[in-house]
Design a protein around this nucleic acid. Structure first.
Lengths: 237, 237, 237, 237
DNA sequence: TATGAATGAGACTTCATTCAT
DNA sequence: TATGAATGAAGTCTCATTCAT
């Protein structure tokens, strides 16, 4: 683990907000010799430009072709850098995947927390969180897909770390449901755990059917899913 | 495509019923000269023994390690046959995956149809089908997992075929929901399509969290999921 | 070497005269189970039908694709027999090639001898032989091509045998030239050996440019080549 | 197609003059760590050393054993490099063959042009060119042999390219003959095309009989062949 | 900070041949 | 006379990674 890359990536994670248009790769020149535009502000933020571009390209390619089917050669060629450059910033191909997961998990955890701690009534907080995770999953469909398809490619240690983080996320979400169950707002004949798994199964599956050029906007799907979740939580008479 | 394998596999698909234990590999002798037990009933079912064993082993390994991480060498070693034998029955490693999908799809389609055509009331038919697909998915967790993780490994043509079959399945299921919507039994403010994607997302995700040694039996999960589905279908006041 | 095949093939070599249309393969049913028409006369000559068909098919495929690029599977499938059947009649794939060479050599040697021993004047005998070898080479272009491209595939022992037979052929031809040189009819400033190699280089090369749908008939090419040979043999002033 | 190899090979084709001894493989150290002698002039020509050595070795082995009978493993072992190195410079085994053809064709075309454009009388120009192509074919007997035996191994596209280049060569040569026919120096009762095919058949066949330890030097054979060609071109009375 | 030639293990697949029936 | 399942060795090629520069 080279200190140089641990720094920028961990301290300044590449931010890609919900709805942020990924511009990766499209502006990269395909000259093959790896030279890129050395604009004026490249000097200032250029240091992070290469790793960021690599992550963006890797995310897209992993989603499109799967982790194993994507070669390092393909990644660096698409990103317009050399292999040496990639290995300068990342320890390995696996490391790229790890960083992708890390970013996704950090972002989703942050977002959930933001909705969970508002002063709104519980039902609203849960519905908002549910809707938001759908919207943000759609905004980052590639990450969502990779999450489902490529988890098993991670080496055991990192996989365990990812799962632990994921579990914390689920527990936070489940906490909201249990709070409602205790308050008598939600049905109690179903374990909150099962409901969480039920709902997030649906969420993680979005990448396999959602089309951005389809009839439903991300927000509409988010609202539908949140409604379905809330409906299924209504106490039975 | 050797005629020999197209025949038995297509006409007499290897049956692996719900809960049927796969006995792959464990009873195969590793003598190296390829002779296997020539018992009395070998004559009757022995012909399909090798391809069946290969499919069973491949299913398990693909689920455990992923398609790309599983080598043909590993498959044949585990199944106790030679590579040549595998390529005698299957065109390629991809072909193995195709056959696995084919079997899963045929079985699930058959099961759905069985529940859909009974004389029971609509709500019962739908609940039964929903519960059953959960139970059978758990009974074949490996197939379910492969379905999610390895679809993108299939070559485009076969992938299209699988998706078409899958769509037919979804349409059949959706038909039941739409029937209930027309009858005023189910809510109509959500497209049936969305509900189907919501529910099957949860179903396909089972392989990522269900543990057979956990607290819940397959039937319990099936009932929970079916209940949650039915609840979310209740008309809104 | 099974006695059964040594017999029929050696004693009754499959005859394919100059200009004889090869009908091989075209009447073979592609049922895949290897059953062929069991007509009335099949009983009488059926015994030679399979090896003959195999040789004809192999000749065509070797010429089209090369020896190494043609698999035994392809040969037997095209011939409509099984692998077992092929190995019943031939020792190996190499053996097929040997038999092809054997037939070609026997035939060409026979033809040359026929022209060499007539009562015609020497110049006529030589010109006829030269023209004939062109015509018969074109009539069996596949064999000619295989001769050039696949000789090195033969195992050393058989290759030596083929070369010895070939040398005898050349020596017989050279004998005619030397006869003319002694008689003062042909130039003597060139070794007969060189002239033979010169001429047969041209002959063996026919398969690489002659097209049966081109402007020149086989006979025309034969006459041209014979003329060129005779011209180059004229004594220098 | 890596840019690195397209460059040096195409722009600076590995030169192997007539009679130049190929020194392939023999001086390569088998240290296994890949470091080779880093002499002073390595800087200048060292960059092309590996691909050049590979080409030389492949040429020899293809000629000795045939293309299909020569494994990549054998090539790289003889050249003293790893398989990875070979695939770093060449796209495939086929690509090696292509490069071999390319070099031969370029060289022969260059040589013909040199003889065709001199101020000498036509007969001398043609005789010189004819003699030279024999001498240079003998100097590169391996290439000549491969040309005959392995053309059909090339993939169709490249084969077409080779044939087109070859045709251009033939047309240039034929142009000289036609020039003489128009001038009344050569016979006109034979199509120039046929004469070209006749002569080059003999030339391409050299590799199958010429022995460098035989009685005739390359130059002697060249002179004989040129004489025979010129004789056969004399007008008939 | 970046290069790119080179590594070497391992991947999938083909194929001529055998043998019990 | 013929079958076809099975063998097992060998084939071509890919790829993540390293290292001298």
């Amino acid at each position: 683990m080279l200190p140089v890359r641990e720094g920028p990536l961990t301290r300044c994670p590449v931010q890609r907000g919900v709805g942020a248009e990924a511009t990766e790769g499209k502006t990269v020149m395909e000259t093959g010799n790896g030279q890129r535009n050395a604009g004026s502000d490249e000097q200032a933020e250029g240091a992070a430009a290469v790793p960021r571009r690599l992550l963006a390209v890797a995310t897209r390619l992993f989603a499109e072709q799967g982790f194993d089917r994507t070669s390092v050669q393909e990644i660096v060629a698409t990103a317009g850098v050399t292999k040496g450059a990639m290995y300068h910033y990342f320890d390995s191909k696996d490391d790229l995947l790890s960083e992708i997961y890390g970013r996704v998990l950090r972002e989703q955890t942050d977002r959930l927390e933001k909705f969970a701690v508002t002063e709104a009534p519980l039902r609203e907080r849960l519905a908002s969180a549910a809707s938001d995770v759908v919207v943000s999953s759609i905004a980052n469909l590639d990450d969502t897909k990779i999450f489902m398809e490529s988890m098993h490619q991670l080496d055991p240690e990192k996989r365990r770390a990812v799962r632990a983080e994921r579990r914390r996320y689920h527990e936070r979400f489940r906490g909201l449901i249990e709070e409602g169950q205790r308050a008598g707002e939600f049905r109690t004949d179903k374990p909150a755990e099962v409901i969480v798994d039920f709902f997030f199964g649906a969420v993680h599956h979005l990448a396999f059917w959602y089309r951005s050029d389809g009839e439903l906007s991300a927000q509409q799907v988010g609202d539908h899913f949140a409604d379905l979740l809330m409906s299924s939580l209504r106490p039975v008479r």
